[in-house]
Design a protein around this nucleic acid. Structure first.
Lengths: 125, 125
DNA sequence: GCCCATAGTTCGGAACTTCGGAACTAATGG
DNA sequence: CCATTAGTTCCGAAGTTCCGAACTATGGGC
């Protein structure tokens, strides 16, 4: 098993971060890692929302987050623990992660409200 | 020619915005539209950096930005004018766009510095 | 009206990415 | 040393992106 690769914070690119978090499952995983005291075994995230994510896809999601510079993964025996690199990323790109995580949180609340009130679709322009 | 589709601001999803701006060319186009008094014909962005972008790819980039809810495009005779929807998007997802545009700006300055000082690669962990 | 130029869009195929099941490896406990 | 648990790798199917060529739409000149 190849050792886990982590980019130096100076090699972290905004496009990689956006690409990583443009996937709602990955954004949810990342948000969870941050809340959960910055540590989380991969298997602790077997589902996102109501959707079950297969092992191989999960493994890939963690790889994308890791290589984007968003998380740091360490093998501890048979499992991998993931820490968010929030502080480093925030120092390099202030406000970026907060804006993204907040946007997803707002979007979710919005969806809930919409589900309660049966809506009449209306078009822009 | 099909009329240009614009999502209502309430239908704008964070993942679509991140996906649109995860491409550096698109992020550059969007940044340019914002600076340039919020109006820009497609053809005015024939190149990004030193790279020439073919017409068909450009057309597609504008479509992605439009459908993500980031810009509003209006046909004016033979050309299309693009306005940024910054104000609406900012109201819905405060800080999101500022964080992203700022991150790309910081990254670019960082690259310039790195090019001046010949570096010694160093690995993380 | 008819032709031309300009500005964008659509089509379609090649190259690339993502997804997920099956097979694999690595550490640990009995 | 076998079984179990945790995660990775492989690989084919499905989907996405890129870009050249062909197309459409608008406006101007005659």
């Amino acid at each position: 098993m190849r050792p886990l690769f982590h980019p130096a914070i100076d090699d972290v690119r905004p496009e990689a971060i956006l690409h990583a978090l443009a996937d709602p499952s990955r954004a949810a995983i990342f948000a969870k890692i941050m809340q959960a005291g910055c540590v989380e075994a991969c298997s602790a995230v077997s589902a996102v929302g109501d959707r079950v994510i297969p092992k191989s896809s999960l493994s890939n999601h963690f790889k994308v987050l890791r290589e984007a510079g968003l998380i740091r993964s360490e093998r501890h025996g048979v499992e991998v623990r993931n820490h968010s690199r929030w502080i480093e990323v925030e120092a390099r790109f202030p406000g970026l992660l907060a804006g993204i995580i907040n946007a997803y949180a707002l979007d979710q609340r919005h969806d809930l409200r919409a589900a309660e009130t049966p809506t009449l679709d209306k078009d822009a322009i």
